[in-house]
Amino acid sequence: MRYIKLYFTCLKRAIISRLQYKADSIIGIIGFLISNTATLLSIYFIIDAIPSLNGWSIYELGFLYGFSMMPVAFDHFFSDELWNTAYWKIKNGKLDPFFLRPIPVLFQIIAEAVQPEAFGELILGGVMLGICAANVGVKWSFGLILLLVIATIFGGILITGIKIFFAAFALKFKRSGTLLQGVYNMIGYTRYPISIYPLILRTLLTCILPFAVIITMPVEAVLFSAFNPYLLSLLIIGVAGAVLVLSVLFWNWMERFYQSTGS
């Protein structure tokens, strides 16, 4: 309870901070829109040259791409400060004050910043999802909508968990930005049908960095009725929860290795 109140106090502060840079926020939203449009257009240009990609039509691919943005946006809004932590904060000694306060360091990092740009992604993803679903002729049901909502929220939590896990390496090694970036970029793998990858990569994306579970599988459930939406929802909640718990434990363990700089 105390931490919920504390989180909202920090959230308020983070929003006030962010509002100081309205111009940058707007440019950031435009940047994300352009970034996603560019990637999407690239896919379009490529697929346009062939009849279909392993059986996926252009609209089905658009649906996949659109949905992949949703959990990403959810994570993006809440845990953006992990990037700073992994790249610069520890190296520049800016994490020291966090260790001098009587509340968990990870909590302070998560509460340090919010990223309103995420709404840009959420809206763009939603719009694409809608357009492509209409063109594909998806037969919506309560279960499928629930599945997509669960996959967005718990998918976001899973991404946050994985970010925490790899940002934690910076506690010992001062920087883990490149590693985090590399792992995070694996989300990009799920923008294409998973069948284009060899078995080892498919296993990696389902079992080790389970981005396929939160993105590919729900989309296959909606487009091809490949999975039962309720069972899949439960699976996603379970996997996301497990990843988050594991990551927080790992972070706390790595905190013991944290050392400030000498000077």
Partner: peptide, 28 residues
């Protein structure tokens, strides 16, 4: 303990001072 490192500030850079105090009140 309380710590002041002369060259680095504990305060949040881009918000009014009073907001930083409000956050510290909750933290401590």
């Amino acid at each position: 303990i309380g710590v002041v490192f002369g060259q680095k500030t504990q305060l949040w850079w881009d918000i009014p001072l009073i907001e930083s105090f409000k956050v510290f009140k909750e933290i401590y």
